[in-house]
Amino acid sequence: MVEIKSVEYAYPGAKAIRFADFKLAGGEHCLLLGESGSGKTTLLHLLGGLLRSQQGAIRIHDTDITQLSESALDHFRGKHLGFVFQRNHLLQALSVRQNLLMAPFLAELPQSEERVNEVLDRLGLLNRKSARVRELSQGQAQRVAIARAVINKPDVIFADEPTSALDDKNCERVSDLLLSVASEQRATLVVATHDQRLKAKITRQMVLPA
């Protein structure tokens, strides 16, 4: 489902980072570990097509995304990938419901009110449906971000430090929800983190050398 082969990336004026080859089956979860600066985020962004111009091949769902044109990649991302970031990057001007609907809107998929309800219900946020983003607590906001990442039923979910900003209680809840929702939808989950609390939850782990 997710496979990389001899991928390299060089920031302008810096030495190229070489990433070890790996392969994840559909529905498999994986942790990317490493010190900050080890290239976790770089690898995650390369996998998600947020960063380009690298060497090697990245195959996701039988598509080599390095071969896609810019707009085809955007389209692919909208349809097959979901993202959760460290700081809950929700669109401040919109309500929770509108934030969720942005995903199918931008991916040019049908927008379904039932799907919004279903996902919010699953994440225990149904009562916050019409809330403004700034009215949410940090834990709630991160759950909305997860809801938005899964609403289009992506094949792969990429999470970049999804729990580092949360306290233990919220970390527990958010990571459990993320894992169970991903499993329910048979989505592959790739989490880049240095958060030790997650190590016990995802057994497949890849450590990036510093």
Binding site: G48, E70, H75, R77, G78, F83, H89, M102, L106
Partner: peptide, 14 residues
């Protein structure tokens, strides 16, 4: 951030 998030959700540059 909003713009970048929108791109991650499949919005094209245009």
């Amino acid at each position: 951030y909003d713009l970048a998030i929108m791109r991650s959700m499949g919005a094209s540059r245009s």
